[in-house]
């Protein structure tokens, strides 16, 4: 078959602009996800029963339902309750953040639990509170260990963010669809889209590897 290189050349800038939006959604979602995940992860380990239950319900619900359904819930079901239309950008970011938060909560929980219990005991035996020991002793150590799984989560979100194309949000995948709708050049465009995702994932993976090494030597 003949590849239409002119079309690839003319579409590429549009796709790259979409890729920038994909990175934006991912960074914002994982960023908010970190905040949510840090709090929920700690809540799952704290000794306040109600907090623990709430955190468990949240994590179980998010992990037990597809991201696509969660996006639909925010974009289509939420207006049924609030009565006003939800902005696609807001829907995309909030669904992805809430989703990412649950996975990151598990990453935090595992990271915290991997720290020797003797560290908590040492902190407490010096008179520090649970919260102080968490903040100054446990979390700094746990954070180093969760860098690789956080990198994985970022990569997963980078790819999963393609799902927000279904609510018409114009990130990389949606841009590809729109170009194809105009030009019927499925092969060229989908190859380009795939290649752009591949390069982005590769760059993130390299960055995480560098980060990991930097923390190791410290």
């Amino acid at each position: 078959m003949d590849l239409n290189f002119d079309l690839i050349a003319s579409s590429f800038p549009l796709l790259l602009a979409g890729a920038a939006i994909t990175v934006e959604i991912t960074a914002l979602s994982v960023g908010f996800g970190l905040l949510i995940g840090c709090m929920v992860g700690i809540a799952r380990l704290c000794n306040v029963k109600a907090l623990r239950y709430l955190a468990n319900i949240y994590v179980d619900f998010i992990r037990g339902t597809p991201l696509l359904v969660q996006i639909f819930l925010v974009y289509f079901a939420l207006p049924g309750i609030t009565g006003s239309r939800v902005d696609p950008f807001f829907a995309a970011i909030s669904a992805c953040s809430i989703n990412s938060g649950a996975y990151i909560a598990e990453i935090f929980r595992a990271g915290i639990q991997s720290i020797d219990p003797g560290q908590m005991e040492a902190g407490r035996s010096l008179g520090m509170t649970w919260a102080q020991t968490m903040r100054y002793i446990i979390m700094p150590q746990a954070f180093k260990r969760i860098i690789p799984p956080l990198g994985n989560e970022f990569i997963a979100m980078l790819k999963d963010s393609s799902l927000v194309s279904v609510i018409g949000f114009e990130e990389l995948t949606r841009r590809g669809q729109l170009i194809i709708a105009r030009t019927y050049a499925s092969f060229e465009i989908w190859m380009c889209v795939a290649l752009i995702y591949l390069v982005m994932v590769f760059m993130v993976a390299r960055f995480v590897a560098v980060l990991e090494r930097k923390f190791e030597t410290k």
Partner: peptide, 17 residues
């Protein structure tokens, strides 16, 4: 926590940070 301030503890496995 107020009591623990006054009671130092040394562990078998050191538990330094």
């Amino acid at each position: 926590n107020d009591v623990r301030k006054e009671v130092g503890m040394v562990f078998q496995r050191f538990n330094l940070f």
